[in-house]
Amino acid sequence: MKISFQTSIFMQNIIFISLFLLLPFFGFSQVNDSLNQPIIPKEKIELLKNINITFDMRMGLQAYTFRGGDHYYNGIQFKNEHTALGISGKLHERVNFHFKNRFNKGSNVQTLDQLGSNIELAYITVKASEKLQLLLGKMNAFYGGYEYKFSAMDVLEYNDIYSNALAYVTGAGITYQALEQHNFGFQILNSRTMHYDDLYGDAAAEDIQEPDWPVAFVGNWEGNFFNGKFQTSYSASYSNQVKSRGTYFFTLGHKYENRKLSLMYDFDYSYEQVDTKGVMTGIIGNDKVAEEVRYIENWLRAEYRFSLKIKGLLTLMTSSAYGNLEKNNDHARTSYGIIPTFYYSPFKDIDIRFYLAYIGRYYDYSSYALDNLEVSNYNKNEFRIGFIAPLWLL
């Protein structure tokens, strides 16, 4: 086969360029070759021993139905329910940092704390003494109860308060280990991540004003009794989302556990001079934020380990909403929930759980709400099958 003169010249140029690019890898590279040095210097590699990287996943196949009034719909879909990357580590003998990015949340920068909602954690802890610790940055509020203590990855559906509560906010906190079995915490936090007008817009009531500082105060006590068989997680908080009007929130959490069985019960009470959860605002439906609202909840969860690989759990919950509807008749709605779940963990050395669950939610309105607020009772039923994987990458 004949090769043209132009082709021959082209091939010679390619060979010349290739040799020129490869030249540093021969003799000259032995004198000053950056590839001989690791990207991370050897003296810095030790720092990686103090870094933890986690990647949490929950994905499932959902089959659901909705029935309420004249409405009915159903569907089946795969859903990435929870995906989060966490990084934490020790920077100093007394300083640690914590960061968590939840990819299932919006990344728009919030007008008050200047972080996206997807950044759930971004704070440092400073060990002031053996018993006292200081926290600074965006963190989870020290609310009590065991429903709140679970990672969102482990809760298929929250009760109404924590479905709508703002759990991650910016501020400062301290924890104090007063006794070996008793820990106390206190925080001063922003009560919101957004300015009020950005949050509610035209729905704000006429008599509502932005406070100088939308602040929340949270106190927490965690107790441990009978060698850990019985535990408590109590909290009380006050926050003023608007000027001179606020929210009083109390949680009493209890837990009993032995080798195979764990029982948890939470009682939650929230009195809100201006509705922060949005449930009553949605029920009233007059394009104004509801006022003088109360939420009362019960949450129960039982877990039983049948074997090393199989665990069953049952969650039961109720939530009642009260608003300023009419004299002596302010009950608006009660919701009920039941979530039986089975976990199967086939692997010994890695925590990957496959689950099968049913989620039933039922919403019953008071007679006054049914007659006057254009609402109707409804229920949601859902089956899920999927996996939960809290992966420890480093």
Rank of each mutant, 00 (worst) to 15 (best):
V169S: 08
D197P: 12
D207A: 08
N159Q: 15
T193F: 07
N159E: 15
A203E: 12
D198Y: 02
L179K: 15
A204N: 14
W221R: 05
F226C: 05
I161P: 06
G219C: 06
I208H: 14
T232I: 04
G185F: 04
Q177E: 08
I208C: 13
E222T: 05
F230M: 13
P214H: 02
T175R: 09
E180H: 07
I208W: 08
V218K: 03
A172T: 05
T175D: 04
V215I: 10
F217R: 01
Q209V: 09
S163P: 13
D212T: 11
A203T: 04
F226S: 08
P211M: 13
S163M: 12
S163V: 00
F186C: 02
D212Q: 15
N183R: 14
T170V: 08
V169F: 00
D212F: 11
S163C: 07
S233P: 09
N227V: 00
G223D: 12
W221H: 04
G228N: 09
H182K: 15
L166D: 08
G219N: 12
R192I: 00
V218W: 00
G171E: 05
H195T: 10
T232P: 10
Q187S: 04
V218C: 03
W221M: 07
N190A: 11
N224L: 13
F184P: 03
P214W: 02
P214I: 06
N224I: 03
T232R: 08
N159M: 13
N190T: 13
R192V: 00
I188W: 02
P214R: 04
D212S: 15
N183F: 07
D212R: 15
A165F: 03
K229V: 02
E206W: 02
K229Y: 01
Y162E: 12
H195C: 07
L166Y: 00
F230L: 09
V218Y: 00
N159L: 13
A204E: 14
Y168G: 10
V169E: 07
G201N: 09
A172P: 06
G201E: 13
A167F: 12
I174Y: 01
N190H: 14
W221Q: 04
N183W: 11
Y162L: 13
Q177P: 04
Y162N: 13
P211G: 14
W213V: 14
G228F: 03
T170E: 12
I188N: 06
F226Y: 05
A205P: 14
N220T: 02
H182T: 11
Q177L: 03
L189Q: 10
R192P: 01
T175M: 08
F230C: 08
F226G: 07
A205N: 15
W221G: 03
T232C: 08
N164K: 10
F184G: 00
D160Y: 01
A167G: 14
T175F: 01
N227H: 03
E206N: 10
I208L: 15
V215W: 03
A167W: 07
